[in-house]
Amino acid sequence: MGLSLELAQISKAYNGRVILQDCSWTFETGFTHVLMGPNGMGKSTLLRICALLEAPDHGRVNYLGDNRPLAIGLELKRRITLLLPGVGVFNTSVFNNVAYGLKIRGLQRREIEERVGAILEMVGLADKKRQRALELSTGQSKRLGLARAMVLEPEVLFLDEPTASIDQENSEIIERIILEMKEKKRATIIMVTHDPAQARRLGDRLLLIKDGRLWPG
């Protein structure tokens, strides 16, 4: 039984403007949940709160392992990860970018090389392993970000518009990787997208966000 996530009456406001209001939801473990809604309605904020990058003003994010609530700390944060919309590529090689999360977890060099090598093959960046990551195109950077997240084998993976602002070819590659991940790993994926067709292709469950509240799609 993997990690499961529940939201309990999450509310968040910025500068007096309410973005999220009493959002409660249970994300079924092992499924891909797609969050949709108009721009500026709090999709990314909700994702950041779920990924423990931001705290809600009210309510709780509950992570459960074996049906027992888990304390929010580094140990839990290392079981989940978020692909940021802007990726945040480090100014070093492609290999080092992908290896980052493994290195800070203190894994052995040999294991790091094996895992990074395999994931770079999967995202089609193996030939760019030694290349400076900042020289990648936007689409390749997104693939790099996805590889950097996936190499950690997270139990919950958050994807904030993983195919936004990239070309069709890169978009298709990313979708294929997400589908492969769904089939192989059974990690819980929670993603934000604007594309209804993509939501249908990738999602098992659809959620809509409107007027600060969550609705089943």
Binding site: L53, K77, T81, V87, G101, I104, A149
Partner: peptide, 10 residues
């Protein structure tokens, strides 16, 4: 975003 990337990577 670099700091956030480091955070989400653990």
């Amino acid at each position: 975003i670099i700091r956030q990337a480091a955070q989400v990577l653990g």
